[in-house]
């Protein structure tokens, strides 16, 4: 069995505001192993983003433990590219923040960008790119520091359906060919099935893992191909029932 990169052990988290307290997670336990692509689905407002913030270390649990070995890269729903920086400078941003802005690192990041079709857009500014291209640039930015685990918070939900399928395909192939570990949050069941090795289903708030499935698509990792396979609809029905239980 491969090393665990991320582990949640009986994690509880409560938000405190002036108007009261909200327990977003209660008794959350799961782990992500190296090289694995895990998708988490859950009803809206259940605490998915909270879970990722805990994983990224932006929040610390009220009780329980979150252990992460290695660095993480966070990708949000919108690309959050800085409009006053061109694509190249956007991709270098995490290098600047982490003080890894060496010629070698920059070269690697640029190579990645070129490999995945951003070569001719490096000097363009974000508003000049399509939504799909921008999300791809956001992924390359996330990969620039070579994180050990990628945390993806509904990275496709701001895109229209057509673009969404394409970007999903891109992101999947990039993550697979770079052999990255990924934790994807989504409320789209078919997205989870078409991308992941393993799917966790969350209960409504305060959330915990209610079901867990190892998907059986064998070596097939391409989302489009998976959608055509017979297991796809079986998984869809099962997860749909569990999500709406």
């Amino acid at each position: 069995m491969k090393n665990e990169i991320l582990r949640f052990e009986d994690v509880t988290f409560t938000y405190h505001t002036r108007r009261g307290e909200t327990t977003a997670a209660d008794g959350l336990t799961f782990s992500v192993r190296e090289g694995e692509f895990v998708a988490i689905i859950g009803p809206s407002g259940c605490g998915k983003t909270t879970l990722l913030s805990l994983a990224a270390g932006l929040l610390s649990p009220s009780s329980g433990t979150v252990t992460r070995s290695g660095s993480c890269g966070y990708m949000l729903q919108k690309d959050e590219l800085f409009h006053w920086r061109n694509i190249e400078k956007n991709i270098f941003l995490p290098l600047e923040i982490k003080r890894q802005n060496t010629a070698e690192r920059r070269r690697q990041a640029l190579e990645l960008a070129k490999k995945y079709g951003l070569g001719e857009f490096l000097q363009s500014f974000p508003p000049q790119l399509s939504g799909g291209m921008r999300q791809r640039a956001a992924l390359i930015r996330t990969l620039a520091t070579e994180p050990d685990i990628l945390l993806l918070d509904e990275p496709f939900s701001a895109l229209d359906y057509q673009t969404r399928l394409n970007v999903c395909e891109d992101v999947s192939s990039i993550i697979r060919s770079e052999k990255k570990t990924a934790l994807l949050i989504t409320h789209d069941i078919s997205e989870a099935i078409s991308l992941a090795d393993r799917v966790l289903v969350l209960s409504p708030r305060p959330t915990k893992v209610s079901h867990e499935h190892e998907l059986d698509f064998g070596e097939e990792t391409r989302p489009i191909k998976r959608r055509e396979m017979p297991q796809f609809s079986t998984w869809f029905e099962l997860l749909w029932r569990e999500l709406n239980a």
């Binding site: 932006l58 949000l76 959050e80 945390l151």
Partner: peptide
């Protein structure tokens, strides 16, 4: 969200100020 993004990269308050 952009602040969140920078914080996830481990940015200090000063870096958030300067870069964003």
């Amino acid at each position: 969200n952009k602040i969140l993004l920078l914080r996830s990269m481990g940015a200090s308050k000063f870096q958030i100020l300067r870069k964003l």
